[in-house]
Write a protein that binds this DNA or RNA. Sequence first.
DNA 1: AAGTGTAGTGGGAAACTGTGGATAAATATG
DNA 2: CATATTTATCCACAGTTTCCCACTACACTT
Lengths: 146, 146
Amino acid sequence: MLIGEYKFLIDEKKRLAIPSKFRKSLGKKVVIARGIDNCLVIYHLNEWTKEAKKLEGLNKNQSAPRSLARIMFSGACDVDIDKLGRVLIPDYLMKYAFLKKNAAILGLSDRIEVWDDEKWEENKKKTEMSVSDIAENINSSGTQEN
Amino acid sequence: MLIGEYKFLIDEKKRLAIPSKFRKSLGKKVVIARGIDNCLVIYHLNEWTKEAKKLEGLNKNQSAPRSLARIMFSGACDVDIDKLGRVLIPDYLMKYAFLKKNAAILGLSDRIEVWDDEKWEENKKKTEMSVSDIAENINSSGTQEN
DNA sequence: AAGTGTAGTGGGAAACTGTGGATAAATATG
DNA sequence: CATATTTATCCACAGTTTCCCACTACACTT
């Protein structure tokens, strides 16, 4: 079960430890990809395959879906988890997510997100303040009403 | 049945005892999550699974539902209950619920809430004084009218 | 009243995990 | 082809977490 918040450091070699609780669920190989809101997403190989299917199903004749597929596939990258449970984060993804030294790692049930700590704390604070408002504005079908 | 109010201490290692009356109903593994009004919620694994299903059903393309899922999943954490019936509370949840040493534990039928004792007493005092007023503003279908 | 059991609290020792660095392999450069 | 630079693999330390046991207090029994 991938849930929880962890604060880890990225070292000078751009290595980031995966929380030990997550390692069994993720296996030895994972895919790191761009996420929404300037974070990174780490998928189990199977989960990534699902995401990839969705992207492949988009209508390539329209500009927006085409761009989305392009940016997601080109931004993704499959990496091995080393013996100590760390992954190597490519430069272009470090930049995309504004990652420096302090990272926040979030378990989101079927995936993991990696944020620059500062950005996450900011985002979290905002969201925490309005959780009840948000919850009230989401109807039973799971879509936002205003 | 999870009902009643208990006052327990959280020790220096952030361990909190689950009232012995609740232990059989909760099983060996539980999930601790953010609750509304800055308290924590402890779920039986099955109850949590229900909650998680709801969150997974949200439309992740929209910003507000995405934030909600993020804050709920990252704020949760699955823990084992140790042999003496205690759970370990992660730092970020201690902070979220303003927990210090004295905690109030509430049984709410299908779940447990954990409050900082001071906050709970304050909240309780307010609510006790106006139970009848509050009740009058809730209609038969359980929703608030103003 | 003494004994027995259970429950809440505290602490010590062992195991684990995050982090930094050292060494070896691979790739690039002149 | 040799050297330099990057990339990957391995190891060591320290702090935390986890596991286990001791103590005290209260309730209930005999």
